[in-house]
Amino acid sequence: MSVRIIAIINQKGGVGKTTTTANLTYALAKVGKKVTVIDFDPQGHLAISLGLFSKQHVGIDAVMLGEASLEEVIIPVRENLQLVPAGTKLQDIELLNDGGVQRGDLLRKALSNSLQDQDFVFIDCPPSSGLLVANVLFATEEILIPMASDFMALQGLSHLMETIRKFEKVLKKTYKTQLVISRYTASRRLSKEVVAKLQHYFPKQILATVIRETALLAECPSFGKTILEYRPSSPSARDFHDLASDFLIGKVM
């Protein structure tokens, strides 16, 4: 079976993309899945979340620009989990104007016929809808959308879905799209209403476990640890453990 490439995408910031990527991928690696995660946000926050505090790594930027091979830039970060850092030139790629449509195909080419020994490749997308996201949509067949349970996240999702539909039409493919509810506050009625709204528009596409908003999740990146390492017995660690299980077996709301 070939490797599954999944984009963790939402052009709205603060919805939990990097938190979801770091913790979900580690939870998958922990149950024995071979996972590669690509930090595709020029801010490099995923690498920091996984304990790489230096920004001087050569990364996916160099691979896309033909200056390095994927194998050269991969960094093992945990057992079964390896990271491809963003690299300092990723920001420049976002601003590329030359190269026509081909400049949207750099990531797909960089990943083609690579990482075949992996079960999953996850791409942590930047909070934008420019060239980097276009590259991701060229390269992937699967999308996982972290959704905060507030109104502005719904507005952002609407914009994202329009973009996705356009790419589907032009690239003549249909993405397997799933959502994960992040930053959920059970005590807020609005959170419940947002989830209900999402269930209406995305039936059987929302992973069953919601990720609750907790202070611990905000704390662990500064220690370079996932929540499953930082507080393994916390409710948040359990959330991500369950989410990984949902992802593997396809358990949805």
Binding site: L154, L157, M161, E162, R165, E193, V194, K197, Y201
Partner: peptide
């Protein structure tokens, strides 16, 4: 009684056309 007045996803009920 809803806390959501405007539904940004309403267009998704129409096939293909986002507008």
């Amino acid at each position: 009684s809803s806390l959501i007045e405007y539904d940004p996803l309403a267009w998704m009920n129409t096939e293909e056309k986002p507008t």
